[in-house]
Nucleic acid binder design. Structure first.
Lengths: 189, 189
DNA sequence: AGGTATACGGCACTCGGTGCAACAAACAAG
DNA sequence: CTTGTTTGTTGCACCGAGTGCCGTATACCT
């Protein structure tokens, strides 16, 4: 069944290697060549695993998005819109115990490195689309309506704001920050 | 008094040339060489006028930010926070009659071109900083407080959402969309 | 043993961006 | 008019990300 030459490494392994280098010399000072060499693969091969150097930092964000989509779909229809969204967003950002430190490093990279800050917008678009889709489905919005898109923007802004605060304040509680940010929003919806 | 070799062109002129090419072939298919050649300058010179190809699209955003800052500073202390912010944001996005079409083109580029979407985040950071600074000043927040940063994120999200809607719906009213988006937020603050 | 599917990775190229150094054009002072 | 100073232009060489092409390597299957 399993035909073809076996892959010589994995995204996870490359991620490990790359994060090591990023921690050492910083994201910008690490070239794709550095990563490839450190991982013992060809530079060209690196780009088979990740579409760009930026994408390394995001792990498999796409499957995480699928989880979010599933989370949202499971929310009972009786639950008020914002309540369900807030619950799903918080669940989305719940980390398995022990992964906290790693997640801090990852998010610090994303939020404090200009190149990654910029790139993040493209990833956020997919995230917003999941939220907007859910909102549209739950509010009987017609295509092109303002509501879903706007709410998705505002929810994302709340989440990013919460993350910034979480990173800026060591020891703070991400879940509580998300709750605070999203409950502010809820008043308007 | 006016010493030195005179500049051979201006940012505005380069902007004109560049927008012409962008309209013709699209942003990505236009190289910096194309712009420089079309403007009759050297490629290296282009980068004396704009730090990057992306920045061409933003005109002199920095001075616009200064206007926003001034707008906010002028808001009487008696005016409720969100009311003042909303007024300033709407004023910031008020266009001189006739400039509407040009502004649509500019914003469509920013919001619909991946490379520019990504870059926009870096510009937005400055914009958010202006808002956050104002909010901090008007709410007696101490440094590191969550409020100002979060509100800035949410206000920006509202504005971007409004712009997206404005672009998606020909004939829609940007000011009204901003009003709607920001009034939603106001309930939580 | 031969075929096929899949992954690796070198090569050459494009494009954005930068540091450096030479050159050009203005004005001012002698 | 010449010389110096200031400021702007531009070519050159280089770096790094990203891509298309293509030959090669390594698995499994018949």
């Amino acid at each position: 069944m399993k035909q073809g030459r076996p892959a010589v490494t994995t995204r996870e392994e490359l991620e490990q290697v790359a994060f090591g280098l990023f921690a050492e010399r910083g994201f910008d000072a690490t070239t794709v060549d550095d990563i490839a060499t450190a991982a013992g693969i060809g530079r060209r091969t690196f780009f088979r695993y990740f579409a760009s150097k930026n994408d390394v930092v995001w792990g498999d964000f796409d499957s995480a998005l699928e989880d979010l989509r599933a989370q949202l779909a499971e929310v009972p229809f009786a639950v008020p819109l914002m309540e369900g969204v807030a619950a799903a967003v918080k669940a989305f950002n719940q980390l398995p115990a022990g992964a906290e430190e790693q997640h801090r490093v990852r998010m610090a990279l994303v939020l404090h490195t200009p190149a990654l800050q910029a790139h993040s917008t493209l990833r956020y678009a997919g995230w917003r689309a999941v939220i907007a889709e859910h909102v549209a489905a739950r509010t009987a919005a017609v295509d092109g309506d303002f509501g879903p898109r706007l709410l998705a923007h505002q929810v994302l802004a709340s989440a990013v704001g919460a993350y910034e605060q979480w990173l800026a304040q060591p020891g703070s509680n991400l879940d509580a920050l998300l709750e605070e940010a999203l409950s502010r929003l809820a008043h308007g919806w």
